[in-house]
Simulated assay, not measured.
Amino acid sequence: MIWLAIAVLSLLAVLFVLMPLFYRKKVEISENEITSSVLLDQLSELERDKKSGLISENEANAATIEIKRRIVSSAHRSSKVQAATSANGTAALALCALLVPAIAIGYYVLMGSPNLPGVAYADRAGEREEVQKITAMTDQLLAKLESDPNGGDSEGWQLLGRTYLRLGRVEEGVQALEKATSREGSTSAAWSMLAEALVRMDQGIISPRSEQAIEKALELNPGNPAATFYKALALSQAGRERDAYQVVVARLEAAEAFAPWMESLVAQANRLGKTIGQPPLTVSDFVEVGQPGPTAEDVAAAQELSEEDRTQFIRSMVERLAERMKTEPDNLDGWLRLANAYTVIGERAEALAAFKVANVLLADAAQDDPRRLTVEQALAELQQ
């Protein structure tokens, strides 16, 4: 039924576009008739002036010839305009009217999700109830903070800001986090969360406000991984990819043990390294990783293989990781590794699917988790 509705709407749109073409022809014919009528009236008036002696016969003959010449010229010009309109404008407009819906439908079929099953409004009742509960608790928290004689503490405003971001109310989240950072005892995490909210509000652009929040977060805690992530992003947007790469690598080298945020920084380092000609990195280059995956020795061994053998070797590791994820569906870092691996070997559809799973799992992660922006950027790039 949806395709039938789309076809009917497309046909109506084409008819609305083509309809003015028929009216335009009638207008052109009407204008030609009006011009000819005026010139014929002038001939009649000239004949009357000639009979009454207002003009001489020679003048009347010359004027008659000129008027008849104008009648012929007007008719010839009108026919040429109609022919040109029919040959050029009409054909071009008709072609556009047919091509635009065809291109739009084709693009949707290729890039959209025509096979995605619909969800009935009634089936979303649980989701709506959850949102309503969160919204109600958010309003209660806001009222409590505003009624506090001291203006509320930093932790409370930070919680409110994090909730606003989860609900997609980014501007309100920014306002709440600005109050959190203005209170005594504000932490580096609060400042990095404010930086993230500002970046989201500015559509991924590092503004002077967000850069100031990043610097403040690093001042309070130089090891803040989220602040490091956004600091590198700011340097990259300023055209300083090499400096951004060094900032990320320095933070990874300072890590004493594996932490989930390292996957995001490694992915960011590899994106930056690709633009400046640096070899790819793995988490195992910096710390011991208990979970199975390609080590530095594996990567070195792969470099000595032929192109065909190297491709098969890498693909076998990716397949092993994909099989393991079937038994560990809640392993967020595993899905991120799998998505990055698929990206490296050029399998965009599989990488997109893995990143979507990771995005769902991130719903329970902290709002200042740098893996959020990693997944958002990857999804934006793969869905282009």
Rank of each mutant, 00 (worst) to 15 (best):
M1Y: 09
W3C: 08
A5M: 12
V8Y: 07
A13D: 07
V14T: 13
V14K: 05
L15P: 01
P20M: 10
Y23A: 15
K26V: 10
K26P: 02
S30G: 10
V38W: 06
E45G: 08
L46T: 00
E47Q: 12
S52V: 07
E59D: 15
A62V: 06
I65C: 08
E66H: 10
R70K: 15
R77F: 09
A83Y: 08
A84P: 01
A92H: 09
A92K: 13
L95S: 15
C96P: 01
P101A: 09
I105Q: 10
G106V: 06
V109M: 09
M111R: 12
P117D: 07
A122R: 13
M137H: 12
T138C: 01
L142Y: 12
K144P: 01
G151C: 08
Q175V: 01
R183T: 02
V199F: 02
M201A: 15
I206F: 07
E211T: 01
K216Q: 10
L218S: 00
G223M: 13
F229L: 08
K231F: 12
A238G: 14
V247P: 02
V249R: 01
E253W: 00
A269V: 08
A269K: 06
N270L: 04
L272T: 02
V289P: 05
G293W: 05
S306M: 09
R310H: 05
Q312Y: 04
E319N: 14
R324G: 12
D330W: 04
D333E: 12
L336K: 11
L352W: 00
F355V: 07
V360P: 01
A365E: 15
A366H: 09
Q367M: 14
R372E: 06
V375R: 01
E376V: 13
E381H: 11
